[in-house]
Structures are given as structure tokens and as C-alpha cells.
Design a protein around this nucleic acid. Sequence first.
DNA 1: GAGTGGTCTAGACCACGAG
DNA 2: TCGTGGTCTAGACCACTCA
Lengths: 250, 250
Amino acid sequence: MIRSVTSRHQTIADDLRSQISAGLIKAGERLPSEAQLADRYTVSKPTLRSALAILQGEGLVEKVHGRGNFILPALHRVTYVGGALSIDARAATNAAMSVSIRTANVKAEGHLSALLRVSTGALLAEYICLTQEGRTPHSLARVYVPQDLVPTDAQEPSASPWGDDLGAWLAGPRPPLAEVREKVTARLPTSEEARTLRISSALAVLDIERVTSDSAGRVVEAALLVLPGDRADALFTTSCTTTDERGTNG
Amino acid sequence: MIRSVTSRHQTIADDLRSQISAGLIKAGERLPSEAQLADRYTVSKPTLRSALAILQGEGLVEKVHGRGNFILPALHRVTYVGGALSIDARAATNAAMSVSIRTANVKAEGHLSALLRVSTGALLAEYICLTQEGRTPHSLARVYVPQDLVPTDAQEPSASPWGDDLGAWLAGPRPPLAEVREKVTARLPTSEEARTLRISSALAVLDIERVTSDSAGRVVEAALLVLPGDRADALFTTSCTTTDERGTNG
DNA sequence: GAGTGGTCTAGACCACGAG
DNA sequence: TCGTGGTCTAGACCACTCA
């Protein structure tokens, strides 16, 4: 029998978790200090800390250096809707979200130039979108658009959490969008992402690489999305409107 | 200045990682014991272990209790293709994969019965598919099909890593498949999943919940896929074959 | 400066695997 | 039995926050 199911830190994490979900400790409250908790559970500080690390990885607890450990409010789950060629798709977005966008100009390099199919050094407009519900970040989107596709008249596009408005905003006078290709994987956040999203570096994130191209075959935008796994899903729906898409080779 | 960027265990992890990627330690080889490594880096065993934990979470090192720490071979990335209404979609699957399927009958409960839209206690056929490349698991698929949709003549369907053959296999004499709905999130594996997939419990996994329904609106199968983030992506492509799908409300 | 979390140590003891 | 990894301890020292 593996002892890990009965390890001290697991037991403590389970106990604290049940206290949290039972509401004995309310959201936003500070936990007793690690030293106090270690005393209460009669364990050493490292052991207690590894218990907290579990809860932190589950997005239940936020550690703040020098201040304490805090219970995070139960998080609303946000749904990213894939294949959003039509703009209404983002309707699933929660209302109480605020989005901050930071704009910059960068040069295409390595991976980015490959994604956008532009040469290295080509000018790109970069939009960094951070979505928050209250003070809690829910998503980080880095959107890149070839400089020559950016309208000079409009400075600030309307803000969608996923940066997909940008594509819509660009689409107007141009060939319509034709294809969205989304490559999804799971990983741990980089330390920078963890800082920006205020999440534990042990909390898994969804990594979505979205490439949108227009009917002329030109890549209109590439987006790198990072969604914390404890508060975001991605939803992809494929409908077979006509039956001619199915092969008969079964 | 946050010291974590310079922490001992990070430095050690970085050093070992570069040794691995430089080929100084070859895939499949055993690392020196933790005690030896701790000596070499002049750190204590817990510190050295936290360095190894980082590499383990990156899928570079496999720890085997009682035997040692081993360098994992560079993993081929496998691509799960979403929206696979057509069977050819799985063509992206690597050839050198073996799939083992375990079959059982279970009763629908809670989440499953909701997914399949059957009443609690309804009989389901359960297919547990584990895909491996050599000895390395690449995906775990738990597929559920309502018992009354299972043909009585065929016992064992042909094996796809994602269990999507099952849908194809079921589709024959029935209404064609009409919709695939895939909900994707990122999380850490359960301890059971980590054991089955032989991955670290600190390695993020893609969690895909796939529901396929036929043109009669009936749910044909529900699949719970778990893909280790270090060796699997999911790819979703949405094409706008006709322009009538796009709203004009932009 | 007091209180908090972050990292590390040196060593103990247990559990597993192979001979 | 022996060597390995897995867990835990008791305490040291540093870094951050806030009064």
C-alpha cells in the first residue's frame, strides 16, 4: 500500500479543504499562520507547507509573502468558446468581467513568424489582454496581428477577454475570416504567467494557440491564450450540418 | 528581488536539464542516487529532491521507488484531433502506438448519466483505452456507450487511441453522427491517473470531455480523455465553408 | 521591529525493489 | 539484506509587509 494516500500533508490538506468547502473558513479570510497551523496539526513547518501547496495547486488558497495565506473565493468558471468565426460565440463570456489591454509593437521572431507566416523581423501589433473578475484574473491573451493589417484609424478595439474581437475588428473591410486553428495543451505556467495571473506555479493552465486566417489564406492573427485550469474551460462544438462531410470508408 | 529565480533547487534543476538536453546523460539511463547527487551539489536531500520534482513535472525524469531516477526518452508529441465526425481525422495518430482496451459494464451515475442523458442506474458499456508508444503511455480514454446501442454481434471494436472508433463502429446501421461537443480543461492528474499513465502527479494533463450525438439528438457516447501535457496536444480546426455562418452584426 | 512566508539543513525513519 | 526513493522533523536563516 502506497502511503501517499495517508501521508500527513495529504491528511492535513484534506482536512483544511473540507473546512473550506464547509464554510468554516470564509472566502477572503486569512488562515492562521503556518507556525500556528503546524502546531495545531503537530507537524513541522515544511510538512504543513506541503499541505498548503496542495490547496494552492487546487486554486483554493493564495499565499502572499509576508502577509499570510488567504482563502480564495469560489471561482466562477469561464468558458472559452473555440472556433469563434462568428462573433456571437463570445456571448458565453461572463458579464462581470473587466479586460485590460496593453498594446505594443514587436518584431516577429521564431515561433511567432512561423505562426503568422511572416518573415522574421516583420512588424507586428501586440495586444496583451488580461481579463479579471473583480481582482481575480481569469485569462491572459497575447494577440499578434501583422502591422499592415491594423487599421490606422481605430486605435483601441472593443475588448473581449479572448482577444477575438480583434479579429472581428480587423475583418470589416477585408476578406472574411475563413478558418480558425486552435492547438490546445496543458502545462504549468511560467513564473511570469503565474505572477500575472496571480496563480500558483503548481496550478495547471490551458495553453491555446489560435491562428485565424481569412478566405484569401492569409493569417490575420495569432493568439496565445493562457487559462488557469481551476477557473476556465474551453468548449469546441462540431456540427455536421450536411452529411457530405462524412467519409464512407468506415 | 524574489530569490526563487536563483533558488538552489532551481539552479540544480536547470543544470540537470541542460545536461539532459545536451545528451550528457542519455535517455533511459539511471541518474546517480539522490544521496550522491545531493553530495555532488552540496545540498541536502530534500533540496535535491525538489530539484528532481521540477524535472519530473516537466516529464524529463521518471522516479521509480526503490530503483532510482531515470531519464525519460524525448517524447513524441501526439495530436488529438477534435471534432472527429469523420473517421479519417484520426489519421494524425502515430503509427507506432499500441492500444489496450478493457471492457466492462457499469451503471450510470451522477455526472455520467447527465452527460449521456440517461437515467441513473442505466446500463452502460465502458471501454478503457490506454495508448502506449513502447512502454510509455500517451493517453487514457474512458468511453461510455448506452448498453442498448452496443451491437451484440461485434465484441471488440478496432482500436483507436481516442476511442473514437467506437463511435464509428456504432454508427453503421444507425442515424449518422451529427455533433461532437468537447469540453477541455487543464488540471493535475488524480493519483490513479498518474499511476496508470506513469506520470508525475505534478505533470499537467489535458482533460477532454467529449459527447457525441447522432442526428436524432441521442447521445451515442461520452468519453473522458486524459492526455499528459508533455506528450499530447489537441487540435481543433473550424472552417467556414459557406459564409452564411457568419453574422453580419459585427 | 514584529510577524509572516520562503528556503534550506542534517538526519531520522519507513517503504519498495532486487539479489 | 542492501540500496534506493518517500516522508517527516526541529530548527536556522532570509525576504517581504506593515505598523
